[in-house]
Design a protein around this nucleic acid. Structure first.
Lengths: 231, 231
DNA sequence: GGATGTGAAGTAGTTCACAGCC
DNA sequence: GGCTGTGAACTACTTCACATCC
C-alpha cells in the first residue's frame, strides 16, 4: 500500500496529551534500570486510572503482556512512533527575550525530533548575539523554511509576527504571547498561557473542588485555538 | 447563610479553562473602546462554537442581553468573580534560572490576584541577587507562607523541592519541571510541559487531522496531575 | 495467579434547534 | 429582527466488569 507507516488509528485528543506523560514515566523507569511496569503504577504516576492507561495504550496496538504489564522499552518506542518522533522537523523562534531564551536553552523543549532552525528578534541589542548556538536574526530578514513557529513576543506584536510566519509558509504556530491570533484556515495555532494555568489552579483552590474529590486535582491545562480570516 | 459569595454552581473543567480566554477577549474589546460582543464573535476568536460560549457563560448566571450580545464590561467582571480574581494570594517561585526569571518578569504571569512573595534557589551565584524586586533566598532558609508554589528547577531536583514546599504548608504546586511529582493527598499539582505542547502540535501535523476538519486545530493543551504517597 | 484488552454501561461535554426576550 | 439561554439529542470520553492470554 501507499501509506508507509500508518499503524495507529485515530487517537483521541485526551489520549494524545497523555501519551507524552506515559513516555516520560517509561523513560524514568528505564533510567532506573527497571524493565516492566503495569497500568496501575503508570496510572498512579500520571494521575489517571489504570483503565484509562490501558485504553490509551491499546490504541497503539497490542503492546502489553497479559499478566506481566508493559515492557518499558517497547512502551517508550511505540509511543515515540505514534507521536512521530522518528521524523524530525524545524522550529523557528521569534522573540528572544527572557522566555524565548529560556525555551531554546531548556533541555526539555527542543526534543523528540524538534530541531532549532533560526532565531528572530527586532531588538538591535539582541540581533547578532549568539543564543543556543544560533546568531539571532533580524525579523526584516527572510524567514527560513520551518514546520513550526514559536512566538515569544509581546502581545501587541504577536499578530504581525504570526502574519509574517504564515507568509513564510509556516502553518503551525505555538503561541506563548497572551494574544488571540487570527490566521488563515489551514494554519494551526496552539496557545500556551502561564497565567491561565495559575488561574485554573486558583479556581479549584477557592472552590475546594478538584476533579478527584477534595484531594487531588487531575485537571487538564488549557490551550485554546482560534483561526479566522479578517481582522 | 454562611457562604458569603457562592454565586456560580460547579463549572466544568473545560469551561474553567475557556473562561480566561473569554476574559482576555473581553479586555481586548474594551481596550479598543468597544462595548458589546456576541457569542459568534467570541467563538471565532476563542476557537470554539458560539453555542459553547453561551453555555459556558450561562454558567455564571444571566449576563447577556437577548438580541444584543454581551456587555464587555460585565463579561470581564463576572468572569473575574467566578475565577476568584477579587481575592489575592501569595506565590513563591523556586528555581531562578532562565525560566523562573522569565516567569516572574513576565507581565502575563503574576496577574489577577497573584502576588509574588519570595524567590528561592540553590545556586550561590544567584542567591542574594535581586530579581523582579525580590532578593533571591537560599532554599535552606525557611519557606515563607504562600498559597501556590511554582517549580522551575531541574527535573532531578523537583521531587525534593516539592517535598519542602508541602512541608511548608503549600498545597498547590505549578510544576514546570519535566518530572512527575509524588505528593500527599490533598496537595494539587498542575503540570506545564512545553515539549508536550510541541508534540501535540506535531502529532496533528503528521496525521493531517486537527479536531476541526483538515483546517484549524482546536486542541486542548495538556497538564496532567499525579498525587500519591510513597516513592 | 495476575494483568491486559475490550464490549457494555455510565458520565461528561458539545451541538442542535428553538422558545424567550430585547 | 437578532441573539441569548436551554431542553433534548448527540458525541466523546471514562469506568466497569470480565473474558483472554501469558
Amino acid at each position: 500500500m501507499a501509506t508507509p507507516r500508518l499503524r495507529t488509528r485515530k487517537l483521541s485528543e485526551p489520549t494524545i496529551g497523555r501519551l507524552p506523560v506515559y513516555q516520560r514515566i517509561a523513560e524514568g523507569w528505564l533510567a532506573r534500570g527497571l524493565r516492566r511496569i503495569d497500568s496501575k503504577r503508570i496510572g498512579e504516576l500520571a494521575g489517571v486510572t489504570p483503565t484509562t492507561v490501558r485504553r490509551d495504550l491499546a490504541g497503539l496496538g497490542t503492546l502489553g503482556t497479559r499478566g506481566a504489564g508493559y515492557d518499558v522499552n517497547v512502551l517508550n518506542e511505540r509511543i515515540g512512533e505514534a507521536l512521530g518522533h522518528d521524523r524530525s522537523y524545524d522550529v523557528v523562534v521569534v522573540g528572544i527575550g527572557n522566555l524565548g531564551r529560556a525555551l531554546v536553552n531548556s533541555s526539555n523543549f527542543l526534543i523528540r525530533g524538534a530541531r532549532l532552525a533560526a532565531l528572530y528578534d527586532v531588538d538591535p541589542a539582541v540581533i547578532g548575539t549568539v543564543v543556543a548556538g544560533h546568531v539571532v536574526q533580524s525579523l526584516d530578514e527572510p524567514i527560513l523554511p520551518a514546520t513550526v513557529g514559536v512566538l515569544c513576543v509581546p502581545a501587541h506584536a504577536a499578530q504581525d509576527v504570526a502574519k509574517r510566519l504564515v507568509e513564510a509558509e509556516i502553518h503551525a504556530l505555538l503561541n506563548f504571547s497572551p494574544q488571540v491570533l487570527t490566521v488563515p484556515l489551514g494554519t494551526a495555532v496552539h496557545y500556551v498561557d502561564f497565567s491561565i494555568e495559575l488561574q485554573i489552579l486558583m479556581y479549584h483552590l477557592n472552590n475546594g473542588t478538584g476533579p478527584l474529590g477534595g484531594g487531588v486535582l487531575h485537571s487538564l491545562g488549557i490551550a485554546t485555538t482560534g483561526a479566522t480570516r479578517g481582522s
